[in-house]
Design a protein around this nucleic acid. Structure first.
Length: 153
DNA sequence: GCCAACGTTGGC
DNA sequence: GCCAACGTTGGC
């Protein structure tokens, strides 16, 4: 059982988009970074929980939680020339990119802002808060998970 | 829109 | 294998 923080730009895919999906489930696809790919492919397990984080927007922060509801499997968007995530170098016989299915667990009433997270010394070593971190998925410890959850009104 | 911090690419 | 140039991310 692992805990994760997963970023998405709300203009591309927000928590409301996920909420509107059938069964509030969707593919988490388009990962095109090897470090993130390795974590997703090797460490993600069904039942893992994740924070949904809105990035590159007016108020960046955590907006809810999700559950991992599939094993990692090849990201087919890499094979689709029509897809914005198309990667001609990904061979269907030996897929380069992976995705996973996520289901919404809870949408918070208020956003837990990045600014708010920065005020908590106990979260200091969380990858999200480290300078220069740009990975779209980062691991979270159970301790950090609980601390952040206490901020939810 | 700026810019720091990476990651990727490609010439050598 | 090195490294400069370029591209991307994402907070501010």
């Amino acid at each position: 059982m692992n805990y994760w923080l997963m970023k998405s730009e709300p203009t591309t895919f927000s928590i409301d988009h996920l909420m509107a999906c059938p069964k509030q489930r969707d593919h988490w696809e388009g990962i095109r970074n090897y470090q993130v790919r390795n974590m997703l492919r090797d460490d993600f397990q069904q039942g893992d929980e994740a924070f949904f984080y809105h990035s590159s927007c007016k108020i960046p922060g955590i907006v809810g939680t999700m559950t991992v509801v599939s094993d990692p499997y090849p990201d087919d968007t890499a094979f689709d020339p029509e897809s914005p995530y198309y990667d001609p170098k990904s061979d269907p016989e030996n897929p380069r990119w992976y995705r996973v299915d996520m289901q919404l667990k809870e949408k918070f009433n208020t956003i837990i802002t990045l600014e708010q997270l920065r005020t908590l010394p106990a979260l200091g070593d969380m990858p999200l808060l480290r300078k220069g971190n740009r990975l779209s998925i980062t691991p979270i410890t159970l301790k950090q998970w609980k601390i952040i959850h206490k901020l939810v009104p």
